[in-house]
């Protein structure tokens, strides 16, 4: 057990402590100046804003996918069920080049979209698309088991009390899934905020427009502006912590509703 703790501290704690120590070398003023520079602010805005938007899309589409996979029987269901995990298993760089090729102006989807006047690759829309791709499994895989385990009696009870299907879904099923849905949203958001590999190829990486925060960290590092890189990283790390704590609370909330059978 001592071994566990020391291993954990070596591999996780020391590096993170290093990051915070480094950020402490900055005066609050310096720290603030870095963060409030236009380019940093824009990068953070792009990362957080688009990640949240993508997570919301994933919440809606993920719920639809879960519903189809759990409640309906259709040809190819098992295959689609397995496919959901692809964004999780596919190396991010591969996803990045593939999405770019797909949505580039001459790509399979890019060409018809370009004909409609919609440009995806090398614009913020491309970042949005990549973040949707990367977030799908998080919503699906957190909500799926909860919907599967949802007691059928709950719906029968609602029906026998006179609720129609719509009322049952809105008043009974969705609230029962709420902790899982929010957990999925938080996980998809956290993943999209920090995502690098699948985004940078399709993003265009134009400063202030389509430059994500992780890329800005890499750029600052290559310019040897370690302080700048550290400051941005600290902000993102704090957000990660907040998301983890939120998820833990959501899990506890879900547990507290479990009946003690």
């Amino acid at each position: 057990m001592g071994l566990t703790l020391s291993w954990l501290s070596v591999i996780i704690l020391i590096p993170l402590a290093g990051l915070f120590l480094k950020s402490l070398e900055l005066s609050p003023e310096q720290f603030w100046n870095i963060l409030s520079s236009r380019r940093t602010l824009n990068a953070l805005r792009v990362s957080f804003g688009l990640a949240f938007a993508a997570a919301c899309v994933n919440l809606v589409m993920g719920s639809i996918i879960v519903w189809a996979l759990v409640r309906y029987r259709f040809p190819g269901r098992r295959l689609f069920d397995a496919i959901v995990d692809v964004p999780f298993a596919l190396p991010t760089a591969v996803a990045g080049v593939a999405l770019t090729a797909l949505f580039a102006e001459k790509g399979w989807l890019g060409a018809p979209l370009a004909a409609l006047g919609i440009k995806v690759a090398f614009t913020p829309v491309g970042i949005f698309v990549a973040m949707i791709f990367i977030g799908i499994p998080f919503v699906v895989r957190t909500v799926q088991p909860v919907l599967q385990d949802l007691d059928p009696e709950i719906e029968e009870a609602a029906g026998s009390l006179g609720a129609n299907r719509w009322q049952t879904i809105i008043r009974v099923i969705l609230p029962s899934l709420a902790p899982a849905l929010l957990t999925g949203l938080a996980l998809a958001f956290a993943r999209a905020v920090g995502e690098y590999g699948s985004v940078i190829f399709i993003a265009g990486n134009l400063p202030n427009v389509s430059e994500i925060a992780p890329l800005l960290i890499v750029i600052r590092l290559s310019e040897y502006r370690y302080a700048d890189a550290t400051a941005i990283a600290v902000v993102m790390l704090v957000v990660s912590f907040v998301v983890i704590l939120t998820v833990n609370r959501l899990q506890r909330w879900a547990q507290s509703r479990m009946p003690a059978r």
Partner: peptide, 17 residues
């Protein structure tokens, strides 16, 4: 934690060390 931290930050901490 490593699940929810950006991979770039994971790399960064080793550069800092």
């Amino acid at each position: 934690l490593p699940f929810s931290v950006s991979p770039v930050i994971s790399g960064l901490v080793f550069v800092l060390l």
